[in-house]
Design a protein around this nucleic acid. Sequence first.
DNA 1: TCAAATTAGATACGGCCGTATCTTATGTTT
DNA 2: AAACATAAGATACGGCCGTATCTAATTTGA
Lengths: 195, 195
Amino acid sequence: MAEKKKRRRGADLENAILTAAWEQLQAKGYQNVTIEGIAAAAATTKTVLYRRWPDKAHLVIAALSKFGDLPSYHVPATGSLRSDFLDLFGQMATFLAQLQGETLRGLLADRLQHLELGELLNHANDGTALKTLVQPMLDHATQRGEISHADWPDRVINLAGILLINEIISRQDLTATAQVEMVDEILLPIFLAHN
Amino acid sequence: MAEKKKRRRGADLENAILTAAWEQLQAKGYQNVTIEGIAAAAATTKTVLYRRWPDKAHLVIAALSKFGDLPSYHVPATGSLRSDFLDLFGQMATFLAQLQGETLRGLLADRLQHLELGELLNHANDGTALKTLVQPMLDHATQRGEISHADWPDRVINLAGILLINEIISRQDLTATAQVEMVDEILLPIFLAHN
DNA sequence: TCAAATTAGATACGGCCGTATCTTATGTTT
DNA sequence: AAACATAAGATACGGCCGTATCTAATTTGA
């Protein structure tokens, strides 16, 4: 009749927490999720959570990494720069579609607030990550003779990402129409501009 | 010898609060400013502040409106689209220079978090405000024959604003070099693209 | 001038944050 | 198997948020 006093540890416990976090997120949305709530739902205490993640944003990202269908982005190679960009946006849209806009907005806001000097690197990393996709696209387009050169300023190469983020934040959505417009009216004119 | 029990009211009180808010902001930076702290510094209580502003972001914006040198933006008319854009960025940079990047970041993050359906209009308004500056620039450029037409999608017209915000957020700064690059590598190629 | 309406100011609440401290279960090591 | 190290879990703290409630000072307007 004695109560069991099992304690979960390590990966075991971590799974339970991330599962709880994921469920809470689905049920309540980012803004209404609390660290204490997740801890309670996982039948542990927030002390344990704070040992693993510095804040809600990181915890949610961890849960997202585990349970969200994370994108395995690949470099588009469709044969034209235009459809490459559309493909890229498509990949991103597929990923973002899972997150209700509210979660992404909340996440971004939190990250923005906690962005300290050191963490700016992360932000830069995001840029770098995007560049590893876009740069090959530009290389291919150059080889095909579609564009005159493949060396563009980082600000230009990262523009696709900026447009995407802005679209999500301000319109809470990333429609196919928007994707096409961003490619045709903004990105292509830049890369195809005669020099 | 009796203590004075004067109570400030209305505009009087509001001034005192905004002054306190402004001082706190200068002294501590946005993130470290608290509603309670401002109330205390103004020798009143937060109840009074909450009667006037819904949250820290709005209070700070109010203080900013009162004490910051707010920009009286005017439509650049320098004679070329390129220098018009540079002028516009210059105006914005002047304004933003007052805010340490931290304040702008904090403000944006807060706004982002509290952005509910209704308030999205505000965001749209920002876009509209910018458009009232950019559209005339494009009209003039069209009249001069610099560009082929003046009717561009909102997404394109608002791009200057997006670039600006992104620059501040991710690099905490808005250098002259950055301004030139954004104009020469991004905006001009778009508007000058041959159709 | 005096009652009524307003609103400043005081206080208290529950909620959550993030940290610190302590006990105690569970591993690990020898 | 005993000693040791690790980490879970419990608890408590101060800070701030945003709200509610009460009182009393000040305006107002009849």
